[in-house]
Each structure stands twice: as structure tokens, then as C-alpha cells.
Nucleic acid binder design. Structure first.
Lengths: 324, 324
DNA sequence: CGAGGATCTGACAACGTTGTCAGCCCGGGA
DNA sequence: TCCCGGGCTGACAACGTTGTCAGATCCTCG
């Protein structure tokens, strides 16, 4: 900038004014400055600029589990879209479900002076963020709640969706519903399981012996479905609590030519092309992410109202559920 | 930092030394400083730090078409992984295939003083990056070549993969191969088409009347496959130049109970579960991205050798191709 | 004709940090 | 005894930019 000023024969302040389109610069002086900028290939240092002005860095931080996962990729895409509408860049970090790493990354994002944080929590204690939030870096949590910190949160209606889906199974006459899930250490799993139990209990059908935990991949899901079907009183319906599990269940049911009803939480691409029909509790991931991002930008723009908890509704997409 | 220094009764420089683990600080002084840091919740301003030291910002920029797209999400994931290995954060921007937007985003990334750029080009002229690169911001292009700029490039072997796949069709006795693609304005489409033509020409089977352009979505692909099959001399095999097109082709061939051979470029999740078998020219997107990212970090670390062009091989994944 | 405002410009300090350098203290060798 | 070097500390300037303020010029209006 000093060089540009020298070449144009003006002060650095005038160069600053020109590159920021500030008023009160004679058109011909501005011309000279712009010529010098072009000649020297000058580009404003955004870091120094936001350091001095103390203003926004026009950057927000997004912390997710893993970028390559389609669910998080969709979130990142929707957030990027909203960010772009606010001329803001996106700093993305993957916690890999590791709370220690999550904490370190969030601190790092704050050290980089992001204007706000969008977090899919991995850990369950975010008290360490309190000082940052108080110092003016707003944070919005999505898909899972924050721990130990009053903060804006945008969640899916996991419980309501699971309840509605299982109620449908019950109404179709199913009495024994196998429930397949990963781990109750995961918030979404707990909620979905609770919803399923709500619906079963309401019909007097609760039976914890039909719940299978610890299913992490499609292969395990397929094996567990097989085991349940081989029992003396097999379930006539299955509820898979996420799409990895649904996938394995589809494979096994199809392989056996079973007539069991299959309900899944999470829709996914191509599910309608799969060889076994199943109904899903679906939701719009983009709405989840956009809602959170828009809330964050309202905070960044100065909204200081009390933290909000928003719930994104789910939809039961019926692709055919056989009666009992 | 001034406050911390005051509270600990030392100079700011000593605080700086402590937070940077610099040598020559008495352990008890360091203790006092750390206590003050904790009490005030001090966090180093990474922006100011890299402004003053002129050193790296520990941030790289990644420019892709669209984060939500699984191909780019996989790239982003692999790049994030490599970045994390180098304690570097990732600034991601989506060009949305718009060259003007691409240019603006790349400039913006440079203004943010990223240590390096990883670019999936949207436009075909990147001469505007020359001054940045000369000033020391290395750039590596991936999946598509840069235009008007000598730069490191990491590409898939589109042409070789397509050639190998189509050669396989020819060897199985197919004489009429329908070729389905989007637009030759896209580099990868041009290369794949060239590879297919190579293989057909080598067998004396080139016939441009079997090439169909402008297919942007599965629905169009399905329609075009139907049209080709309804012709008096229908193809006995199809080559879909990307996975969106493969998907539509699968649907139509399955619907008609056709026995045509289907070859696709790009593998995708679940392809093995689809109702119609097809063979794909596959590649490892993660290798593509990791290779590019690792090259970028070598540049960042000072490698000044001549720009390199790397080719990532493809693999023919045979899931069954009927003979003619 | 002078006051007051609008327009234009630049000197200077400051944002939060770190590189440079000078200075202090202390122990050990000549 | 003096000198030297290593350990430790702080004052100051600087990174590239912009906020503040003051000064200069010109126009308008009473």
C-alpha cells in the first residue's frame, strides 16, 4: 500500500480510501491510485484490515464430524450458501467425533477471530466456549444439543419422527417390532429410540428384548436382522435408526425374500431404487443447516435476544409398508 | 495480552514468549503468566500473530464447484485430512461452475493470506493468479487443468480409463456403442469422449451418430437411452460418461428388461445394489485429492521445482458385461 | 465580505502480536 | 580481579491497514 501511495503520489490513507470505495476522493486521484494498484498488482491484506478496524473478519467457522459424510456435506453446502449470501467465507473443521479434538478446533477457530461458530457437537461439555461467547463470538449448535452452555440450538424432531413412524407400524397391525441402533451414547439415537418406545408403550407393545444395540455398519445390521428373523417368534417389522443400518437391513430382507415391514430413519439418495421397499422418516438436512446458519447471522448482526431452541419437523415418506 | 502482562507483573514480550513456548523464561514467571492467562481467559489473536511474524497463516484455500456434491465432499474430506496432518485449517469456497465467481473467490482467498490454494477450476483462464503465485502463494489444480498458467496439476486418467472400458466392450463383440455425455465444454467429458473414440477408431467402429450430447440429469439420460433403443439399429452397449447419466441409463434398461451392456464412468455408493448390473471405470477420489494436497504442502514448505503434472490411474471394475 | 459547510487530503496513532536489540544478573575461567 | 558468555527480561519498532483529527480548499448563503 505504501508502494502504491508512492507511485500514485498520494498518502497511504488515500489509497485506503480508494480501495474501500470511501467517499471524498477526487475522481482523477482515484484513477491514479487504481492505475498504481493495477500496475503493482496490489491486493489488500484482509487480515491487517480486520485487525485494525476490529470489525468482522467475514469468516464463520463450521465444525462437523466429517466432511466426506453426505449428511455433513449437505450441511456444509447449505451453510456455504447462506454464508455466501452474507459475503462470508467458511472455515471448516472435522472433529471426527473426538471431544478433545473438537475443543481444540473450536479454540483454534476462535483464535482466528471468526465472526461466529456453527457446531455439530461431538462432546457433551461446551462450557469452555462460554468466555468466547461472552466476548462476542456467537455460536449456534445443530443436530445435537450443546452441553453446559446456554446457546441457540437447531435440532431435528427425532423423537416425534420415530414415534410417528412406529405408530404407523402399530396401526398396520405389527405387534413385534425389531429396533436396530448404534449406541445410546449418541444423542440422536437416544431420542429416536425414545420415540419408538413412546409409540410401542402407547399400544402396550413395549418389549426391550427386540432392541439390538451396537450396530455400526451395514454388515452388522444384516447379520442382526438375520438373527432376529431366525428366532422362534420373529419380528414382523423392523425399525432401523439410521441409514447405514437401513442399508444392511434392506440387503438381508431382500436376500431372504422376507415380507417384513421396514421403517428407516434418514432418507438417502437412491433409496427408491433399492430392491426392497421401505418407508422412511425423512427430513430436510438443508433446512436444518440453513435455519442454523440464518440464526447465526442474525446473532452476528447483533440480535441479543435469549437463546432459541428450534425443531425441524420430519416427514413420513411412505414407500409401502406391508400389513401384519 | 497487555492485561495479562499487567496481571502477571511482566512485559507483554514475556507473555508472548510464554504463550509461544519460547525458551529463556523462568519457570516460576511462566507459571504466573499462565495463571494470568487462565484467569483472564486470554486467547492469542492468530491474525495479529501472523500479520506481525509474516509467517504462515496455517490456512489453505480449497475452491470446488459445490460442497454438497459427493465427489467434491470426498475431495474436501481428503484435503481436510492432509491439512489436519499439517496443523492447517481449511477455507472452503464453492464456485458453482461460474468462472467470474471463481476468480472473485480466489482473489478473496489470497486477500486472506492463505498459505496455498487447491483449485478445481471452473473457468479456463487463470492468468490472474500469476501475480499471486509469483508472490509466493502456491496453487495446485486438480481434476481439471489450469488455463494460462504454468502450475501443478493432478488429473484423473480420463482418456485412458474410457479407452480401456470401451476396448473391453469391443472385445466382447459389441459393434454399436451408444455414448451418452453432458457437454464437451467440460474438460473431463472431452477427455472421456476422446478415449472412447480412440478405442472405437482402433477397431474401425467409430460412428458419431451414436453419440448423444447435452444430458444433464438421470431423466434425460433415461429418455435418450429409450430413443436409441427404439431406433432401427439400436446399440448393443452404452457408455455413460458420468454417474448421473449411468443412473438414468440403469433405470431405463431395467424398465425395458433390456440385455444391453452398460459401462459407466464414475463409480458411486450403492452402485452394486442397483437393479441392473453395470461395469464402471472407477478411480479413487481420495487419492486424487490427497496427492494434490500433499503436493501443495511440499510447495508451501519451499519446494520450488518445476510444475508437475500427475495422472491418477483408473480401474475397470467389472460387474458383468454381456457379450454381443 | 465573512461565516459555515461540504469536499478532499494527509499525519499520526492504533489494532495485537513478535523480531530485534540492549541490558541485567550470575557463574566460571584467566 | 576482570571479562565473557549464557540465561532471562523488557523497550521499542514494526507487520499492513484504518479511525481520528486537523488542515486546506472551494462553494454557498446571508
Amino acid at each position: 500500500m505504501v508502494d502504491v501511495a508512492a507511485l500514485a503520489g498520494v498518502s497511504v490513507k488515500t489509497v485506503s480510501r480508494v480501495v474501500n470505495n470511501a467517499p471524498y476522493v477526487q475522481p482523477e486521484v482515484a484513477q491514479r491510485v487504481l492505475a498504481a494498484v493495477a500496475e503493482l498488482g496490489f491486493r489488500r491484506n484482509h487480515l491487517a484490515s480486520s485487525l485494525r478496524s476490529g470489525q468482522a473478519t467475514a469468516t464463520i467457522g463450521l465444525l462437523i464430524e466429517e466432511i466426506a459424510n453426505p449428511f455433513y456435506a449437505t450441511i456444509a453446502g447449505a451453510v456455504a450458501e447462506v454464508a455466501s449470501e452474507h459475503d462470508t467465507m467458511l472455515l471448516i473443521a472435522s472433529s471426527e467425533e473426538n471431544p478433545a479434538r473438537e475443543q481444540q478446533l473450536l479454540r483454534d477457530l476462535c483464535a482466528r477471530q471468526v465472526d461466529g461458530l456453527l457446531v455439530v457437537p461431538a462432546g457433551d461439555d461446551h462450557a469452555f466456549l462460554r468466555s468466547e461467547v461472552e466476548r462476542g463470538t456467537p455460536a449456534v449448535f445443530l443436530d445435537r444439543p450443546a452441553g453446559g452452555l446456554p446457546a441457540d440450538t437447531v435440532l431435528l424432531d427425532n423423537r416425534g419422527g420415530a414415534r410417528a413412524g412406529v405408530r404407523q407400524l402399530v396401526e398396520l397391525g405389527h405387534r413385534r417390532v425389531g429396533i436396530l441402533l448404534d449406541s445410546t451414547a449418541i444423542y440422536t439415537m437416544r431420542e429416536r429410540l425414545a420415540g419408538a418406545r413412546d409409540a410401542l408403550a402407547a399400544a402396550g407393545l413395549a418389549d426391550d428384548r427386540l432392541i439390538r444395540y451396537g450396530i455400526r455398519d451395514p454388515e452388522t445390521a444384516a447379520r442382526v436382522v438375520g438373527e432376529l428373523l431366525d428366532e422362534p417368534e420373529p419380528p414382523s417389522a423392523f425399525f432401523a435408526l439410521n441409514n447405514r443400518i437401513s442399508l444392511g437391513a434392506v440387503e438381508e430382507l431382500h436376500r431372504r425374500g422376507s415380507a417384513a415391514a421396514l421403517l428407516g430413519f434418514d432418507d438417502f439418495d437412491l433409496s427408491r431404487l433399492l430392491p426392497y421397499p421401505f418407508t422412511v422418516v425423512a427430513y430436510d438436512t438443508r433446512t436444518l443447516a440453513r435455519t442454523a446458519a440464518e440464526l447465526l447471522f442474525r446473532r452476528i448482526q447483533g440480535d441479543r435476544s435469549a437463546p432459541r431452541d428450534l425443531l425441524i419437523p420430519t416427514v413420513l415418506v411412505d414407500r409401502g409398508l406391508p400389513r401384519r
